[in-house]
Design a binder for these strands. Structure first.
Lengths: 346, 346
DNA sequence: CCAGCTTGCGAAATCGTTTTCTTCGCAACT
DNA sequence: AGTTGCGAAGAAAACGATTTCGCAAGCTGG
């Protein structure tokens, strides 16, 4: 019944038919003109384009998708938008995909792979053509659901695609190694690490393993390195640092799995009478803005998050064209030396 | 052919017709059964549901959306995901909307209203049923496009809905006043402000105006307050602070339109030999994480960003039910007094 | 000058649902 | 008995685009 609602009095939606009418041609021609089909003449095309512009025509995507079987829609599932590192990645992704006329639906899993799975299913129902995930570790059900629905997957923050269509990221393990090497060069011999929670998080795990392996490699005894885990929050980082500083002998260098943790660690030291970097060196990860704000400024490993998002978008586009699985784009992380690290105390 | 299914290369898509066939009923009945329409008998419904489950039926969202004109899809356009304040808002929004079975498409405008307009068009084309915008100032074309497409609009970060369907936010003007009042109470008489770029940004403008008006109200001469504008970045905040500190006589209190700017300001002071808060008091806005990290910790105005997102979601749901335009939900900002403010120097 | 090709365009089929319209049967009322 | 009312379910009409097919010119080459 038309009388039920009359909130929007003038809500006339302009359809392709209206455009065609205005341009004085058929629906078919209008459609072709707008889609850049070369079989339509120059004059006619101009007329259609002009009409569309004048009327402010916006094509109905559902109809288009229904008929043409292309939705120009991808989903992304990240742990949380709260952390700048993921927000930046999504920003880059979104930016690049928008240029290709593709929209992005975002879901957050809160580091919970179970929730990730249900989000994935939801996205499939929504008809996304592809999905962007973080990390290499996922439930087999997630992967299967996606594969069965013919949804291609791009992994980020990792350089090992596994069964996915592609991966865009960096070598977490190597990054851990580089942190260790730098600290070893500075003469440190007793190490600590505040890792993110490694369960169901391959990135946190690999950073830790790289760090540990490089230290072992240098002939340091496993007794001289203490590893703690903490959820990604400043407070948790501070708490972990406290535990670390209570061990005897205490480490002179601490590598943190994220700047968030590192900031917590640094902030703990001041009031506790521990000097950074004189008494203890601290390295972060991600190169967030806060790394620059905290005192002393944080030595950290820079992760090009925005580029990663952009390149993920490109990998996706590339994959859709070529159909070749296993595209890998590796980005480089860089150790940024600032003020939170220094030579080992005597 | 009776061969049930090829491995997983070419999975046959099961349509409603298949379900109906299997359940031995018509399309219409199958549709009704699946949608919980009460006019279908118990027995029939069970049969349809069973058939759908067995076949692993997933409705084609495009077709459904096309016919039923409901996509369970909303768009949000924010300036950038880079700033935690917006990321948090989106996070809250997404969270709450997901519970209602609605997905969110995110676009970023980079504080550019022109880009916002084109993003809006894109979202309309995608068929979003509503759109969430930031602030009250938008191009008339944006508003028109949305109105014409029958897309409801919810504004955030503002409490004045204008022509939109609703607004969820806070009183930027009043927040500016409260900052000024607090500084006046502390005895300050010469004021500075580092505002965000106020062009096309009503929020930045209102905060500034509230601040200024409250100061004037207290009988302070306009000569004793200097207002600068800066893009939202730490460096720009620092640069603005430098300019501010070079005026004579220089302000003893500075209000910044964002914590980002305030952090830049605070960071500038240390090396410049200016003590915060002894020589100059600084107030931020947003209560970002960095406000807590910088030394001294920042007095700031807390903006409940995540709640704002959640409430925007609720406003939207409410609006869809009632159809009443002009829902306004006002949130309270709070002045959080920390260490970057103190009594005016003698 | 005509067969054969290309080009430009319109009519109509199509995508997979939801929703209206209709029909049918049966119980209940006048 | 005839009519009405009602619940359940099927047939067919939307929804708004794209795409297939076919037709009518306008060429070209033999």
């Amino acid at each position: 019944m038309p009388s039920t609602k009359l909130a929007n009095s003038e809500a006339k939606i302009v359809k392709l038919k209206d455009v065609a009418l205005r341009a004085g041609c058929s629906l078919a021609t209008a459609s072709r003109a707008l889609n850049g089909n070369p079989t339509v003449g120059e004059v006619e095309r101009e007329r259609v384009l002009a009409a569309a512009a004048q009327l402010g025509y916006v094509p109905n995507n559902s109809a288009r998708a229904l008929r043409a079987q292309t939705k120009h829609l991808v989903g992304v599932i990240i742990p949380t938008l709260d952390h700048a590192i993921y927000a930046k990645m999504v920003d880059g992704l979104q930016d690049r995909l928008a240029q290709a006329g593709t929209s992005v639906i975002i879901n957050t899993s809160g580091y919970d792979l179970e929730r990730e799975r249900s989000q994935a299913r939801l996205l499939v129902a929504r008809g996304v053509e592809a999905i962007i995930l973080v990390g290499a570790e996922h439930q087999t059900q997630t992967v299967e659901t996606l594969a069965r629905a013919g949804v291609s997957q791009i992994l980020t923050y990792t350089d090992t695609p596994g069964d996915a269509s592609g991966a865009v990221g960096f070598d977490n393990y190597a990054s851990g190694i580089s942190a260790a090497k730098y600290l070893l060069e500075l003469g440190h011999r007793r190490f600590g690490m505040i890792a993110g929670l490694t369960q169901h998080n391959d990135r946190a795990r690999l950073r830790r393993d790289g760090y540990l392996d490089a230290i072992m490699e240098a002939g340091i005894s496993r007794d001289n390195v203490v590893v703690l885990e903490a959820p990604y929050s400043i407070d948790a980082g501070g708490a972990a640092m406290r535990s670390l500083m209570q061990t005897h002998p205490r480490p002179t260098a601490v590598f943190c799995g994220s700047d968030i943790l590192a900031v917590g660690a640094v902030k703990y030291c001041g009031p506790a009478g521990i000097s950074v970097p004189k008494d203890v060196s601290i390295i972060g990860f991600d190169n967030l803005e806060i790394a620059h704000v905290v005192e002393p400024e944080l030595t950290t490993i820079d992760v090009p998050a925005r580029e990663m998002g952009q390149m993920a978008a490109e990998a996706l586009i590339e994959f859709k064209k070529s159909g070749e699985k296993g595209i890998v784009k590796t980005l480089q992380t860089r150790l940024l030396i600032r003020q939170s690290t220094g030579p080992a105390p005597d």
